[in-house]
């Protein structure tokens, strides 16, 4: 019988055993595996070695699969792993890859749906974990984003004063603005700095920019007002209109903000967050 097993059947069987989130016996006797090859036939088709049974031989692949999945996700989600603890994280990752198996040529894409998985889960504090996972995914994706040219001081200086009203800025490709309900930037910073962290995280809105400068990815917390203005600019809103939006959103702080705006703008340019400046034909 074993000699008649088609290649695709054998491979679907082996893959189902490797990916099965249970012990070896459960994996071999699972419905998915036995749908392809009945247990007795599969057992006869995997040859024993002098020292290992068929089940033990396939178990080597099963163990390596678990290690790869968990190690890869731990690299991408150190904050989530820290919050959940190592054992719980492993359990969640194996559930995750069962639901969203890798279909990419690289493990760097394995965690793309992890925030969504957390959102759909029954985990304690899943709202916090969802925010945290989104930040960590943004950091991972930022590292592979296309490298953009950086807006230089010379290019800025070349804009005539009368043209500033109709100027808009193009952000670099490796920049993402994020708004969170939970203080995930503080939490991740604490994890990275090996500082004590809390188990119960309360709501505290925070705003973060993830960006890359000189091939290093950064995340930086922003004041709410700073986030609003930067978000407008990154959306292509001309400078003068963006300032108007800011003034309308925070009318009581208008005088104070006028002072900040120049500092923020200099800071963003200095960090290389913009790629180029565009001059539109229409003024506001």
């Amino acid at each position: 019988m074993p000699s008649n097993i088609p290649l695709d059947t054998l491979q679907r069987w082996m893959q189902s055993v490797i990916e099965h989130n249970g012990n070896d016996a459960e994996a071999w006797r699972s419905d998915e595996a036995q749908k392809e090859i009945p247990y007795e036939e599969a057992y006869l088709n995997v040859l024993p070695s002098k020292t290992l049974s068929p089940v033990e031989r396939i178990a080597i692949y099963r163990r390596m699969f678990v290690l790869r999945m968990v190690d890869s996700m731990a690299i991408d989600y150190p904050g989530v792993r820290h919050f959940l603890s190592e054992e719980k994280f492993k359990e969640i990752v194996l559930e995750y890859v069962g639901k969203y198996p890798s279909k990419s040529y690289t493990l760097n894409h394995l965690g793309k749906k992890f925030p969504q998985f957390i959102k759909e889960s029954l985990l304690d504090q899943k709202e916090f974990l969802y925010d945290l996972a989104q930040l960590e995914l943004a950091l991972t994706e930022n590292m592979d984003a296309t490298q953009s040219p950086i807006l230089t001081q010379e290019e800025l200086s070349s804009v005539k004063p009368e043209d500033w009203e109709r100027a808009s800025l193009v952000p670099i490709a490796a920049l993402t603005l994020m708004e969170f309900v939970y203080p995930v930037a503080d939490y991740l910073r604490a994890v990275m700095d090996e500082e004590p962290t809390q188990n119960e995280i309360g709501i505290k809105k925070n705003w973060v920019v993830v960006y890359r400068k000189e091939y290093t990815t950064w995340f930086k917390q922003l004041m709410h007002e700073e986030y609003v203005l930067l978000n407008e600019l990154c959306s292509g809103t001309p400078l003068s209109n963006a300032f108007d939006v800011l003034a309308q959103r925070f009318p009581q702080r208008q005088t104070e903000l006028e002072k900040y705006v120049f500092e923020w703008f200099s800071d963003w340019v200095g960090r290389g967050m913009f790629s180029k400046i565009l001059l539109s034909h229409n003024t506001k």
Binding site: L67, D71, S72, I75, A185, W218
Partner: peptide
């Protein structure tokens, strides 16, 4: 306290 730089860890597992 508002910013940090991160570097992707080496995924040896990508080498299968």
């Amino acid at each position: 306290d508002t910013e940090r730089a991160v570097t992707r860890q080496y995924k040896s597992s990508n080498n299968a």
